[in-house]
Design a protein around this nucleic acid. Structure first.
Length: 205
DNA sequence: CTACCGATTGACT
DNA sequence: GTCAATCGGTAGA
């Protein structure tokens, strides 16, 4: 059950992988112990025609992992914090899934210590919070997530959420391609980082 | 080399 | 809701 997902899982269309990553376990094994949580929010960054992607302007030192094989981690820094992606699709097709939030399942005390706070809901709600809680930094950039060591993704006993529980929305913090619905999250999870603006939905929704 | 700017977060009105 | 800290990446002089 805690086996790492195989390379073939990641070697598919990035949107398909993004949706199927919901409900999976993100597992981090470090010297201090194991910490893991259920993925509840992701964003897809596509290889072609996506100006919001770090790979849009071609390969650089930072985004090199996105151009590598599927199933590797792409870890980048922003505002002095780190964010984790899972690389998808074949080499030289630079697509990736940003892991935006997890629901802590085990190693909660360890996560709390790393975060310097303990409210479970806020431990890993957000891409950089999640990395802090799991001690993920650029040292794990390019790490092979299929090895089942240090950092990997595994099936969870609850399985993939039913399609009706999965919502899509615009990606957070991107100014280009802002209209595309490439964020996916478990609609009824309290551990999702951001909700879409309230729309003019009729009462009772 | 300098200048600009985020795939963010936490503090504050 | 608004706002700025903060620093690595990137582009350009």
């Amino acid at each position: 059950m805690n086996d790492a997902l195989p390379r073939e899982f990641y070697d598919r269309d990035v949107v398909v992988v993004a949706r199927e990553l919901l409900g999976k376990q993100l597992v981090r094994a470090a010297r201090e112990g194991i910490a893991l949580g259920r993925i509840v929010e992701v964003e897809a960054y596509v290889a072609q025609g996506d100006p919001a992607s770090h790979a849009y302007r071609g390969r650089t030192r930072r985004n090199a992992a996105m151009f590598g094989p599927p199933g590797r981690a792409y870890v980048y820094a922003i505002h002095s914090r780190y964010c984790l992606n899972a690389v998808t699709e074949p080499p030289d097709v630079p697509s990736a899934v940003l892991i935006r939030a997890i629901e802590p399942l085990a190693g909660v005390e360890l996560m709390a210590r790393r975060r310097g706070m303990s409210r479970p809901r806020d431990l890993a709600r957000g891409p950089a919070r999640l990395c802090e809680a799991l001690a993920i930094d650029r040292g794990l950039d390019g790490w092979d997530l299929t090895r089942g060591e240090r950092l990997w993704i595994a099936e969870d006993a609850e399985g993939t959420p039913a399609a009706g529980r999965i919502a899509s929305a615009t990606r957070v913090g991107v100014s280009s391609a802002a209209d595309r619905l490439l964020r996916f999250y478990v609609a009824d999870s309290a551990f999702v980082s951001k909700r879409p603006r309230v729309s003019a939905a009729p009462p009772g929704q």
